[in-house]
Computed example of a mutant assay.
Amino acid sequence: MPRIDDDDELATLRRRAYAPGADISADPSALERLIELEQRAADRDGGAADDRAAPDGEQTEPEAASVGAEAGGEDGESARPARRRMPRLRRSTVVMLAGAGLVVATLLTALVLVQRVQTDPLQVGATQVARLTEDPSFDIPSSLYRGITGNVKAYTAFEGFRVISYPSFRAGEGAARCMTVYQPDLLDTGDDAFSYDGQFLLPSCAAGPFPATFTILLAEDTPEREPTDLPADTSLQFVYDQGRDEIVVFRG
């Protein structure tokens, strides 16, 4: 006999799935439970159908067993049991299975995107606002990578900021990359030296599994904020995504 509790739960979950204002798509656990109960109901209905008379002379299993017993002997023992028909899934179950597949695919896609870099690890509400790609046309001031030979890259601008990446001084194939974030308008370069009229001009290098990152708070009087359209007290984080060779920008 079906459990009354299961039937009540199934009715409640169906309302969440099919009634106006349905919200089950945002609750994977409830969706999984609905699919489970729908399958149980389908199996139960299929079993009930098998207990009813078989169509057009086809014997059910009890009837076949009875005939075999009456025949007796070898013929009775070899009587084949009637074929059982597999229960058909309800249309609602098929719809929910398709929906579950879509939810799983969406979650997997989101997981892949999140794993590109370590995003918002402390769940402080940071939002990814840009991905900066390599910009070969930008003329990188040599004073920013003095002592580094080759493989220096610049990236597209973001709110007046430019990022350059370059190999660290540590030799070897697995050497980490470093980056510097700055405002070109605040940089004054000469033949032998340079000056920077901003507040932030420090290199950041990767370390083991941790990518190079640069975090800045643009206060009211921060020189780097003036060329931007960002309000005071905006926080930015630049993260080097080595796998895609891009700079990911987060805003807090």
Rank of each mutant, 00 (worst) to 15 (best):
V248E: 00
L108D: 09
N151P: 00
K153I: 12
R88C: 03
Q118C: 04
I247Y: 00
G76K: 06
Y166H: 06
S168M: 03
D233G: 02
S142E: 15
R177D: 05
Q237R: 10
P167W: 05
P121R: 11
Q237D: 04
V163G: 03
A100P: 00
R33V: 07
P20V: 14
L37Q: 03
P227H: 06
A11Y: 13
T222L: 05
L202F: 12
E77A: 13
A206H: 10
D75G: 11
T109H: 11
D7G: 11
E36L: 15
G73C: 09
E224T: 12
Y18M: 08
L108C: 15
E220F: 14
T60L: 00
P62H: 05
A22S: 14
Q199A: 14
A17P: 05
P184R: 08
T149C: 02
R40T: 11
A82E: 00
A193Y: 08
A69P: 01
G101V: 04
D5P: 06
M96C: 05
T215P: 09
D120Q: 04
S142L: 14
R40H: 12
P87R: 11
T222Y: 00
L122E: 09
L31D: 01
L108S: 12
R91E: 10
P28W: 08
A171P: 12
D8M: 14
V129D: 02
E61N: 08
L31W: 02
P167Y: 08
D5H: 12
V129Q: 02
V112D: 02
R83M: 03
T60M: 04
L186P: 00
R83K: 14
Y155P: 01
T106S: 07
G150N: 13
P55C: 08
T228H: 04
S235L: 05
S66K: 14
A64F: 04
